[in-house]
């Protein structure tokens, strides 16, 4: 698989390590009253779709940036690559 890095261009997926579903960016608030339920959900439950999947890849032997890759889990085709920092900032976060 080739991951088209937004800054570096096409890179072999071998340069990256895989973390999992991009929802891992949205770490729950530990002070919420239902924090325990939220963390259970966050840590253990997955949509695990057959089809488009947004997922976190780390450019470990490259520029060490985190990417959000949209990939089809049935064909392995990659349709979109974003910087994870941009995705994280979208909902108004500052980091």
């Amino acid at each position: 698989m080739i991951i088209n890095h937004p800054l570096l261009g096409p890179r072999d997926a071998q340069e990256f390590t895989y973390l999992g579903d991009a929802s891992l960016i949205n770490r729950p608030d530990w002070q919420a009253t239902d924090a325990q339920d939220q963390f259970y959900d966050y840590l253990y439950l997955r949509n695990n779709p057959a089809g488009l999947h947004r997922e976190l890849w780390f450019h470990e032997i490259g520029d060490r940036s985190w990417l959000v890759v949209t990939r089809d889990t049935v064909t392995h085709e990659i349709t979109k690559v974003e910087m994870a920092s941009d995705v994280a900032k979208e909902p108004g976060r500052n980091q």
């Binding site: 999992g20 579903d21 253990y44 439950l45 997955r46 949509n47 695990n48 057959a50």
Partner: peptide
Amino acid sequence: SGRLMAKADMRLPIES
């Protein structure tokens, strides 16, 4: 498993 149980609206502690 994930694909099938989604039809019962279940999310599983499983990745394929």
